[in-house]
Simulated assay, not measured.
Amino acid sequence: MAVPHISTQFGDLLDPRFQKIFYEQYDQLPDMVDDLFSKTNHNGRADMRWSQVGAFGDWSEFTGTVAYDSVNQGYDTTATYLEFVSGCQVERKLFDDDQFNIMDKRPQGLAIAANRTRQKHAARVLNNMGSVDSYFYVNSENVALVSDSHTTNAPGVSTTVGFDNKVTSALSATALSAARIQGQKFRDDRGNLLAVNFDELWIPIDLYDQAWEIVNSSGKLDTANNNKNVHEGKYKIKTWNYLTDSNDWSLHDSTMRKMSLHWVDRVPMEFKMAEDIDTLVAKWRGYMRYSMAWTDWRFIVGAVVS
């Protein structure tokens, strides 16, 4: 479609015989940014930076003097704000003669598109959980959010157990149990066990039926035995249309996630309008600037299904 919008392109909008013109008459998908991320206030600078500080070790028996401990420097995360824009132009004559005020609603259409853009960007953190994604941020550990090879800066700590948050099994009751057990063995940077409480199951729309059965059935699935289902009522199912892989899923500790996933609006969504004095073309433009990042991987066990 040519730019700007002119009357010869939209004859129907000028014809009063049309009783109704349908303009984006559909429900919008829910905004999941607030569900997934913690909203963090920007710092007024060009980027946002986080740094980790490690844990203390166990206490030792007192034998006459205090054994002083120290913590280790953890990994750094730097998020860079990116700018996103869109706009539209409308000929003055088309705006004046539009019988249905459709062109007057163009800013609403830009807002719908802006929200869709934000959802797609927010979903990157799960859609790309099995790979290093540096579009918005860089983490100095330099491994994927979901990985079987997470590391630590603490000297002498084995990462053989408790540093793997990646699974590859398709969603099933058995796979969910295995993921929960694996996640409850997570360790901090010193190799100490962590208190992880998984309470959310994030899935694409393709897995909803299966996830619902796993979480809501009172008995074990696909068996004649009347054993109780350990997953019943255990997890809140979070379905998101913008999760693009029909097989991947993830198990979250929602409290820990809010401390680990950050969304920062440097400039919230804004709109401006002006009319060109010579051409009589009205211009609307929208602008937003934001970033996001994860700073700790221990809130999630992710299934990158092979």
Rank of each mutant, 00 (worst) to 15 (best):
A111H: 04
I112R: 15
I112W: 13
A113P: 10
N115D: 09
R116V: 09
R116C: 10
R118M: 13
Q119V: 02
Q119W: 07
A122G: 15
A123Q: 07
R124A: 12
V125C: 11
V125S: 08
L126I: 15
N127T: 06
N128W: 09
N128I: 00
G130M: 06
S131E: 06
S131G: 08
S131Q: 12
V132I: 14
D133V: 08
D133I: 06
S134F: 01
S134P: 03
F136A: 08
Y137S: 13
Y137V: 00
V138E: 13
V138S: 15
S140C: 07
S140F: 05
S140K: 13
E141V: 11
E141A: 14
A144G: 03
L145K: 08
L145C: 00
V146I: 07
V146N: 01
S147C: 04
S147A: 11
D148V: 00
D148Y: 01
S149E: 04
H150N: 07
T151F: 04
T152K: 12
N153Y: 05
A154K: 13
P155T: 12
S158Q: 10
T159A: 06
T160I: 10
T160W: 01
V161S: 14
F163V: 11
D164R: 09
D164K: 12
V167M: 07
S169L: 03
L171C: 04
L171R: 00
L171D: 01
S172L: 02
A173V: 02
A175L: 04
L176G: 05
S177Y: 08
I181G: 02
Q182V: 07
G183K: 05
K185T: 13
R187F: 01
R187M: 11
R187L: 09
R190C: 07
L193R: 09
A195R: 10
V196Y: 00
V196H: 00
